[in-house]
Design a protein around this nucleic acid. Structure first.
Lengths: 163, 163
DNA sequence: GTTCCTGCAAAGGTTTTGCACCATA
DNA sequence: TATGGTGCAAAACCTTTGCAGGAAC
């Protein structure tokens, strides 16, 4: 499997810093819908906000424990599922890898992924023409389309050089 | 999980009929690369050619057995892996579902997927403008992009009516 | 005849579930 | 205080691996 320590980057190269806005919105949403924010849930939210998302469930649990908080694996899975159901996280599925969870930010602004099939490094991108084309296809489809995922596969520069 | 009995359809609604061209190419490719075509491998190839692909490994095994041929599950997984490595199959990963395998036809002509998040029904589509936009993004990316996957998510007409 | 494929069974890795205890609102 | 969240352990699920026997070339 891929190197899980690798954080997702934007194409310009810099990481997101702690997204406290997302964390607050998540906590508010939970409370508004009658869910409680116990230790595991709030730890998951805090961690994802700080790491910027795009992590596997196991990574989330591991990092929470590295920070001295103990958490049950099952509770992490349950928290991630709930946050996904509430539309606060997006699940990214790739072949040969566990699902990754990403922050969903409000306003429909979103991104897509370029994944290195060698090492799993993931870079984010967004493109207006692509979105326009997707919107047009969605309009014409018989389905009521609510979301879309685009993943480019290839090799990152390090893996190209190594080959 | 989704209803596995549902075959993939094109947007115009008709199924592919047995793709003997693909089957012949697969068998030729195996033999050219020094692989043998034993019972399990040829059964997998034959079944996929007839069903048109987009199936889970377990479905493939099940259908082969329904046709009276006995096959080991492990052999089905091994055959699917090999065919993927040889570029004869494409792996489609979705959250909450096992990987599905699809026929890869020569000439680069390919399609993408619209999946019903309710029942798992999958419809294929292709769009030139979308491909052009993807090509442009790929050209500009730091990665050497070799492939791409696009999946639209939503609800099919039956599930819309049921809701 | 040799090599490789196959099938079974067992193991591996990820995710879910059951249940008793405990914390949140 | 009542409800629902948490953690542990066990199970479920999908996929891979080990190995002995058998088939393909």
């Amino acid at each position: 499997m891929y190197d899980r320590a690798m954080p997702a980057e934007t194409e310009s190269g810099h990481r997101h810093s702690a997204d406290t806005g997302w964390a607050h919105r998540a906590l508010r949403e939970l409370s508004q819908r009658g869910y409680r924010a116990g230790g595991a849930r709030s730890a998951v939210i805090e961690l994802l906000a700080e790491e910027g998302g795009c992590m596997e469930a196991e990574d989330v649990a591991e990092r929470i424990r590295e920070r001295g908080r103990s958490v049950g694996t099952a509770s992490v899975y349950r928290a991630l599922s709930l946050l996904s159901e509430l539309g606060l996280l997006h699940k990214l599925a790739l072949p040969e890898a566990p699902v990754r969870y990403e922050l969903v930010r409000p306003g429909g602004e979103h991104h897509h992924h370029i994944v290195c099939d060698e090492c799993g490094k993931t870079v984010l991108f967004s493109d207006e023409r692509l979105e326009a084309a997707i919107a047009e296809v969605s309009r014409r489809a018989a389905f009521e389309v609510q979301a879309h995922d685009i993943t480019l596969h290839g090799h990152c520069q390090s893996c190209q050089e190594a080959a």
